[in-house]
Every structure is written in C-alpha cells, then in structure tokens.
C-alpha cells in the first residue's frame, strides 16, 4: 500500500483531539503506512472561503495537495469536508488547464507545484476499499451483533461525486457494509441521507441548526437506534455538541454519537477511555452498558458475503 498523509483538518485538531487519538489507534492497529506532513493549512472550509474568494479557495487547496504530490504520497482524512474540498479543487484543476496554469504560476512563487497525483480518500471508503471487510473482520475481538447503529454518511463523504468518485452519491453502500462487517444492524430511516445542518451554525443561524439536528435525532429515537454513527467532525459537532445544548435546555433526546474510529477501536478491544470517548458531551454509557451485556458472537459471515458479492452490491 502506498504511503499516505493524514489530513486532520482544523476542527479535529482544534476541538476534538480525541478523534485524532482514536484514528491513530486504528491506523496503528492495521499497521497502515501513514505519516504527518508539515505545512498543511485549512483545506480550506468551502462555505467560508469559497463564498468570499474562489481563487483563494482554489489556491489554498491546490497548495495542500501539492505538499503531498511532492512527497509522492496520497491523502486520507477522517474529515468529510476536508476531502471533499480538496477533491473538488483537484478535479477543477485537472479538467481546466487554463486555471491550472494560473494556479501553478502563483504556486511557483512559493516554490510549489500542483501536479494532482496524490489520491484523496475519506477514511471510511478508504477502509472499505483499501483495507477491506475481510481484514477488518479478522481483527475484531467482539462484534456489535444485537446493536442497531444508525449511519449518518455526511454529505461530503460521497458528494460531489464527480470529484470523489467513491460511492453512489444518492444511495451509498460502503459505510453500511463496514458497519455490517462489524456485526451491527444498520437501519434505514427517512432522514438517513439528510444533511446534518451544521452549516447553519456557521452563518449565525443556530436555531435552525438545532431544528435540523432535532429532526434526525427524533427519528433515531423513534426507531430505537442504539447510537448514531458518523465520521465527520462537523457532523459530530452538530449531533454531539448541539444535542447537549438541547439537553441543557431540558430537551433530552439521549442518542449517543459514535465516531467510526471509536467503533472500530471498541471492536478491537480498546476501552472507551483509551479512545477518548469520555470527552463526548452526550453520555455514551447506556450504549456501552447494552454492548457489555451482549455476548461476543461471531459475525454471520455467509449472509454478509452474499450481500457483498451480489450483483450491483456497490451501486
């Protein structure tokens, strides 16, 4: 496997270092060839930078990709926004030679060149494609059979598909496959593919952000999900932090929010404390209690195998 740089992004490094912790634990467990790179900046955040100055949005992202290009490594990120923004710019420059020449004449001034050779992937599709469910299953000490884990993909894990090209943008499968490989049930629910709505918090519309969070969380309550599972710090902020704010106002929904890397860590025998899960705002102890009460059962390999191998399984 080719070496890859982890693009942590601002939100994880600033607000959720425990998510970096669980990500490193999982990458180490699978002995994946990852590294850090000096000099990454904000990806940059599209809704913020692109709205004010598209050219700075493009130049900044191109420079970040160029850092990986130079070291001949790929980029993997546990943040959906970072990957999506970098990939959007990479595809824009790969398909527009004029823009690309303009950007490269700027980058030349700082001794860089965008080549666009670095492959970009979000951690979830990366685990699905490059590590694979078989290898994951071999590593599981205890699976999640008997648990109902509702998936929130996060828009930018899969869209825009012309830039990411990793799954069906309207009916994705890979995250579901991974969760089923971990033995859990991944229920369908009407708001499954709905955007988290965190963006509204970034434009001074907090009440609407809460309204969007509430919508999904209430559905999860109604279907009896044991947790909401996701892999994006922005979505995490929306469902963990904002749910906690609602709790403080007397509206207790009680849906634990679990990061993909935390779930993997738990399955491989790490404790919630080792994974930093005690830093969550919404209490995860109910989830842990139910899981601790379930007997370790092997995954039903045959039906999973059948699902994964049937025609059109990956859309």
């Amino acid at each position: 496997m080719k070496e890859f740089a982890v693009f942590w992004g601002c939100t994880i490094q600033t607000r959720f270092p425990f998510l970096e912790k669980s990500t490193r634990i999982v990458l180490d467990e699978f002995k994946l060839p990852y590294r850090d790179i000096d000099g990454f900046t904000c990806c940059p955040e599209k809704s913020l930078v692109n709205n004010i100055d598209h050219s700075l949005f493009v130049a900044t992202a191109a420079r970040n990709v160029a850092l990986a290009d130079e070291l001949d490594c790929d980029i993997v990120s546990p943040c959906t926004g970072c990957v999506s923004n970098l990939a959007t710019v990479k595809s824009e420059l790969n398909y527009n030679p004029v823009d690309r020449a303009q950007v490269n004449s700027l980058l030349k001034g700082i001794g860089r060149e965008f080549k666009g050779t670095a492959k970009l992937a979000h951690l979830v599709p990366f685990f699905h494609d490059a590590v694979g469910v078989q290898r994951i299953r071999q590593k599981i000490k205890k699976d999640f059979a008997g648990m109902k884990l509702a998936i929130h993909y996060g828009c930018h894990m899969i869209r825009p598909s012309h830039a990411l090209k990793n799954d069906d943008p309207l009916n994705p499968k890979k995250f579901d496959n991974l969760i089923r490989a971990l033995g859990a049930e991944s229920p369908d629910f009407p708001a499954k593919m709905m955007c988290c709505g965190q963006g509204l918090d970034r434009v001074d519309q907090h009440d609407y952000a809460l309204q969007m969070a509430r919508l999904k969380l209430k559905e999860l309550k109604a279907i009896g999900a044991d947790a909401l599972l996701l892999c994006c710090p922005s979505c995490f902020l929306q469902f963990d932090n904002n749910q906690f704010l609602m709790e403080k106002e007397g509206e207790k929904l009680g849906v634990p929010v679990i990061y993909f890397t935390e779930l993997m860590g738990l399955a491989m025998g790490y404790s919630p404390e080792e994974l930093g899960m005690n830093s969550h705002r919404v209490d995860c102890s109910g989830f842990m209690k139910k899981w601790d009460g379930l007997k370790a059962k092997p995954v039903d390999t045959q039906s999973l195998e059948d699902e994964l191998n049937k025609a059109g399984a990956l859309g």
Binding site: C10, T11, Q13, T14, R15, P17, T41, C42, P44, E45, L48, V49, N51, I52, L56, T60, R202, V203, D204
Partner: peptide, 20 residues
C-alpha cells in the same frame, strides 16, 4: 458576522483554530 470572523482568522493564521 460569523463568516467575517472566520475569514479574518483564516487569512491571518491559515486555519480556523490552533491545535489544542
């Protein structure tokens, strides 16, 4: 205002917050 603040921070520091 929040977008203005975010932008200012980005152009000054190249990111939206420093590592904790």
């Amino acid at each position: 205002p929040q977008v203005k603040r975010g932008w200012d921070m980005f152009v000054k520091t190249s990111r939206l917050g420093e590592p904790a």
